[in-house]
Nucleic acid binder design. Sequence first.
DNA 1: TTCCTATTAGAAAACATTTGCAATAAACCC
DNA 2: GGGTTTATTGCAAATGTTTTCTAATAGGAA
Lengths: 151, 151
Amino acid sequence: MTVYTATSLKAELNDRGWRLTPQREVILHVFQELPKGEHLSAEDLYHHLEAQGEGISLSTIYRTLKLMARMGILRELELGEGHKHYEINQPYPYHHHHLICVRCNKTIEFKNDSILKIGTKTAQKEGYHLLDCQLTIHAVCPSCQRALLPL
Amino acid sequence: MTVYTATSLKAELNDRGWRLTPQREVILHVFQELPKGEHLSAEDLYHHLEAQGEGISLSTIYRTLKLMARMGILRELELGEGHKHYEINQPYPYHHHHLICVRCNKTIEFKNDSILKIGTKTAQKEGYHLLDCQLTIHAVCPSCQRALLPL
DNA sequence: TTCCTATTAGAAAACATTTGCAATAAACCC
DNA sequence: GGGTTTATTGCAAATGTTTTCTAATAGGAA
């Protein structure tokens, strides 16, 4: 959970024999500028980029999102919508979690400092190198509780 | 996170105007008998049932898994394999979480009592009715750390 | 038992994501 | 800077998972 700049991203990519491309730089930038609490699907990102005149192909987007998630730059979120969402992976004061209604997918973010500590300790104990840790709560929101019937 | 029997499942389904079918009963039973720590994908379950002579169609399996997850009977796990996995949702002493290697998908289960408490408190505070809460840790396992290069 | 309608199986469709390939262009070396 | 190597891109096609449609079936309530 480091904070990345184009330069540090390039350094880390090159270290592994990979390359910093304009596409990767642009995508990193989009996520860095994204308002706190927003997250994008691959399709969202595709349209976002198209709209701002920097068209990047969907396959490159998919490849880049996966790459950046595996590097720990992005968090991959499963919010129950049938496709993944991504957001920048930020350290301590911004680190947060999601409470999701299983019926309407309404999602609330919340923070809790002890979770990151637990995740760090657990990964360390097993010798894993931590990239991200997220508590996902599946629940039924107040309005869906009232609308009892529909699944 | 209640413990279900065929009878209590029937009661809860009927309450909502739904039905207990042999298929639903069989599927519940499979998950109840599953060794602790195992989880099944839709396809896994399909073949498991086929093998034991109780063929159930894939579409019914998908519908039932979704239904039971939304009822809180099953937990839906995203273990990075491109499809969901399911396991029975059990209360306190069996409640656990997953540490996943983002490269090879090797998964380790771990327990931590405070997480469920945090989840319960958070859901309650927002007026949500809790179904499940899982901490997912994404990390790189020791052997994938050594094999530095491949993404 | 009868009726109503939720549920099923099977096939087809929809959707998200990955892959193959030829063209392009970063990074490294001189 | 120019040349070489090969990672990366875009596009199209393929893959894999999950959902949806429909007619037939069978739970549940009276």
